[in-house]
Amino acid sequence: MTNQRITMTVNGVDRTIEAYPMERLLDVLREKLQLTGTKEGCGEGECGACSVLLNGELVNSCLVPVAQAANSRVITIEGLGSPANLDPVQEAFLRYGGSQCGMCTPGMIVAAKYLLNHNPHPSPEEIREGLSGNLCRCTGYMRIFEAVEMASRAQRGKSAT
């Protein structure tokens, strides 16, 4: 096989890379685009550490051949906010203890963001279901649920004003 030129819009910026079509989107993001915020935990779509948004849909980037992401929009954790300008979900994870070791955190935040995009005020059960594809070994999930609830509440506050 030969390398192909593949163009994607990553975090709002058009990027063109050379890649084999079966390279995993995860590896392309991490190695070719130096977006190492997206993590690999299992390599089999089980843990969610590699979660990104592909055309607005939550996916495990370890299970996406990069050819399938050609001409698509990709949002990674780096596209949500920066330490100086945190997204409200990032802010809530930071403040309420949603992140411990930090390895599941980027994927978890992307999944939480996806959940809130589709359902701005989820019930506790909906939060549990929305995050069930993202495994965390540190927190026991309680602080994460609280962070998502607080982020949702912050949005409600914002939309009310």
Partner: peptide, 12 residues
């Protein structure tokens, strides 16, 4: 190191 972790900039 929380801000770096929630932003994906923490380097493992």
């Amino acid at each position: 190191e929380g801000a770096a972790k929630v932003c994906g900039t923490a380097r493992y």
